[in-house]
Amino acid sequence: MTSSGSFLYPMLDAPERDASALLADLARSAQAKAMESTTVRTTTMTSQAAGLDRAAEAMAAAFSAGGRLFCFGNGGSATDAAGLAALFASPSTGRSLPARSLVADSSVLTALANDIGVDVIFARQLIAHAQPGDIALGLSTSGGSVNVLKAFAEARRRGLLTVGLAGYRGGAMGTSSDLEHCLAVDAQSVHRTQEAQSALAYALWERVQERLEHEEIR
């Protein structure tokens, strides 16, 4: 029998065995995937090092001038956006910075999605809240989420700094003129991409913290 999981775990495309054999296969697969994750995260951090520094520099300058950070994304990227906003706003060590997630309020999200459409769930929130000098940071593992791209377009119109974390070598985000800083992961798997995006997000936070360490923020 060919299992539909054979593309994930080809070695398991075999007749049914007892659980101990399966468990050994699963453990080997987990170890291999963990190593792949480390490789993708390390490669990404190296290839994006210069872009990270530039993005962090611009974000630190925006925070110094009183800017606020808005994070957004869909699905797993929505949770990563929420995590990143929480890290900036209430880190266990370091400076708290004004940051929040545009996926936090289900009333706002469902109102916009129901009344207008899912494409505008982030852009319309920026229209309501954003000021010139604020920061729009969106995540998309495909690099092509329409509502994320629309939010960047709105953000640019309003004079925000735009920063994107994308998979698929950037996808549509990589070539969008609305995006000033696009940090991209080059991986086939959505899961490995998300893990590397999270590493990039953390590195951004670290670099911003370093740059603002001795700075007074009005």
Partner: peptide
């Protein structure tokens, strides 16, 4: 924060689906 927790539950999902097959 840096993707390693995410890796753990991604693996949990991937392995659970293999078991389900």
């Amino acid at each position: 924060h840096d993707g390693r927790f995410i890796l753990l539950y991604h693996l949990l999902w991937e392995l659970a689906h293999v078991c389900l097959e």
